[in-house]
Simulated assay, not measured.
Amino acid sequence: MNRIILLLGVCLMIGASPAGAAEAGIWRSDTAHGYERYWTENRDGARFAIWCPPSHDIKAALIGIDINGRLPAPDTVVRVELNRKLIKFRVGHDGYIHNTCASCPDNLTYFWHQMRSAPRVMVLFDDKRYAGFSLRGIQKATPHSVCASQLSRNTR
């Protein structure tokens, strides 16, 4: 009887965890630390997130990709395949992709619109870590324009 209660308790804890509660492969949006976050998690536990700042300034947006529990190495290149196109992003000193270079906002805008029309995205780090993510539900989770305010998202 104690084993059954223990097993039931473990199942309930797993089901209540954020990873267990969120269906793998579905895109979500929420707010964390003042940033609007658009994110998904695949079945292997890899995460892909776009962080839009409270100012909605695309130059301050970040992309965070976690594969095998780690972000990419600083100052490397992340290769992303989307709609049979290869898009490269330079990783910052902290493992996040920043949009501070002159062409970065245009690159993120192009990437954002490609994501909204593609079925999946594939990511390759320089150290050969690789993950694929479904883009199911991304149109509902993200505004039409990159880092658009909540107000503009509700009026589209």
Results as ranks from 00 to 15, higher is better:
Arg90Pro: 04
Val91Gln: 01
Val91Glu: 12
Gly92Cys: 00
Gly92Val: 02
His93Ser: 11
His93Trp: 06
His93Met: 06
Asp94Thr: 01
Asp94Gln: 02
Asp94Asn: 14
Asp94Met: 00
Asp94His: 01
Gly95Thr: 00
Gly95Ser: 08
Gly95Met: 07
Ile97Tyr: 04
His98Val: 03
Asn99Phe: 11
Asn99Gln: 15
Cys101Tyr: 08
Cys101Gln: 14
Cys101Ala: 15
Cys101Gly: 12
Cys101Arg: 14
Cys101Glu: 13
Ser103His: 04
Cys104Glu: 02
Cys104Arg: 10
Cys104Met: 09
Pro105Thr: 00
Pro105Cys: 11
Pro105Gln: 10
Pro105Gly: 09
Asp106His: 10
Asp106Thr: 14
Asn107Met: 14
Leu108Lys: 04
Thr109Phe: 11
Thr109Trp: 04
Thr109Asp: 15
Thr109Cys: 08
Thr109Leu: 07
Tyr110Glu: 14
Tyr110Leu: 13
Tyr110Gly: 06
Tyr110Ile: 10
Phe111Ser: 00
Phe111Thr: 08
Phe111Pro: 01
Phe111Met: 04
Trp112Cys: 10
Trp112Pro: 11
His113Ile: 06
His113Phe: 08
Gln114Ile: 02
Gln114Tyr: 02
Met115Val: 00
Met115Glu: 07
Arg116Val: 00
Arg116Leu: 08
Arg116His: 03
Ser117Arg: 14
Pro119Glu: 09
Pro119Trp: 11
Pro119Asp: 15
Arg120Met: 11
Val121Ser: 03
Val121Leu: 10
Met122Trp: 08
Val123Cys: 03
Val123Gly: 00
Leu124Phe: 12
Leu124Ile: 11
Leu124Thr: 08
Leu124Glu: 15
Phe125Lys: 11
Asp127Ala: 07
Asp127His: 06
Lys128Gly: 03
Lys128Thr: 14
Arg129Cys: 06
Arg129Met: 09
Arg129Val: 07
Arg129Tyr: 12
Tyr130Thr: 15
Tyr130Phe: 15
Tyr130Cys: 08
Tyr130Lys: 14
Ala131Thr: 00
Gly132Glu: 11
Phe133Met: 05
Phe133Lys: 00
Phe133His: 06
Phe133Val: 00
Ser134Val: 12
Ser134Asn: 13
Leu135Gln: 05
Leu135Tyr: 03
Arg136Gly: 00
Arg136Cys: 08
Arg136Asp: 13
Gly137Ala: 06
Gly137Val: 06
Gly137Ser: 12
Gln139Trp: 00
Gln139Tyr: 01
Gln139Ser: 04
Lys140His: 12
Ala141Ile: 07
Ala141Val: 04
Ala141Phe: 05
Pro143Lys: 03
Pro143Val: 01
His144Glu: 09
Ser145Asn: 06
Ser145Leu: 11
Val146Gly: 05
Cys147Tyr: 02
Cys147Asp: 07
Cys147Asn: 09
Cys147Leu: 05
Ala148Ile: 03
Ala148His: 03
Ser149Phe: 02
Gln150Ala: 14
Gln150Ser: 13
